[in-house]
Design a protein around this nucleic acid. Structure first.
Lengths: 159, 159
DNA sequence: CTCATTGCAAAGGATTTGCACTAAT
DNA sequence: ATTAGTGCAAATCCTTTGCAATGAG
């Protein structure tokens, strides 16, 4: 099975989940909501609100800025999308894809974002919190560095 | 020796470092710069630009918003202050106090910020980056949870 | 005296909100 | 028909910038 087939199938499932969420909450199913959901749930990237608008345009659809933000909010409340803040001055949105939690590696040259999960780290953060009289609820780790491609100089780094 | 005596001494040293930095870079030593430096270097908290303005007012001093931001920028370039983004929609500024790097624990009830440093974590992030073909430059870890006081219910939690 | 800083106000970018209009149920 | 959603523009929040007036060296 190809990656795109897998992602299409995942998208279909999530799309249905979103419709169900809207129905269960008596929220109208609008073309804009579905289009925005398709964009965000159908990508494994981390999109800004602006990126979502651009993706809509690329697909021949469109939605006002306010609608994009409002729909992203609905998607977050549905649990299908999570919000990320990498300290760039704006938020990014990522399909939750049922993944419980993961960390991010960000390339300081090309801004590529890579995800990973590590159990030892999960345990370590719990212990670290406890040793400072905190009870851990969640954590966020971002590692900044050079990705392989940029380090090997495929394109000349600017930093 | 009391804590306040220690922090006053540290403040004096940092204040001098800042004057030296200004001199070395042919930057005028102004009353505003010194007042802002005093506020930020004399606190071990994490202040927003707004907090700095409020602290200035509390001390009978004052500076325009632009000057506060511009001076915070000078302080960061001098290495005496570091910028933090906890995803609140604005930046916070913290006296570097010669500490090379540390993580943050944030209480989700009272917003208290506690700092700590852990060598194993430093090493682990390097290894995690390497295992994903990244070369680590720096990282940021924030653990959210309940601080001891809030957990013990000194004041009733809202979460 | 000369050049950088200051403060104010205007400009900016990201996000939110008010409101008349349109569409879903 | 109702009720909520949509788009636009105005408003907000944090931060930066332009520029005339001010102050440091």
């Amino acid at each position: 099975m190809s990656d795109s087939a897998a992602s299409t199938r995942a998208l279909t499932a999530d799309r249905e989940s979103f419709r169900a969420f809207l129905r269960d909450h008596n929220l109208p199913v609008t073309a804009q909501r579905l289009a925005i959901a398709d964009v965000v749930l159908g990508t494994d990237g981390h999109l800004s609100a602006d990126d979502v608008g651009a993706q809509l345009a690329a697909r021949g659809a469109s939605a006002g800025t306010a609608t994009i933000y409002r729909t992203l909010d609905v998607l977050m409340r549905s649990g299908l999308v999570v919000e990320r803040d990498f300290g760039e001055g704006f938020k990014r949105f990522e399909a939750a894809r049922g993944v419980p939690h993961h960390e991010h590696l960000i390339c300081t040259v090309c801004a590529r974002v890579t995800e990973f999960r590590d159990e030892r780290l999960e345990r370590m953060t719990t212990l670290l919190a406890e040793s400072h009289d905190f009870s851990r609820q969640r954590h966020r780790l971002v590692i900044y560095g050079l990705c392989g491609e940029c380090r090997r100089g495929s394109s000349r780094p600017r930093n």
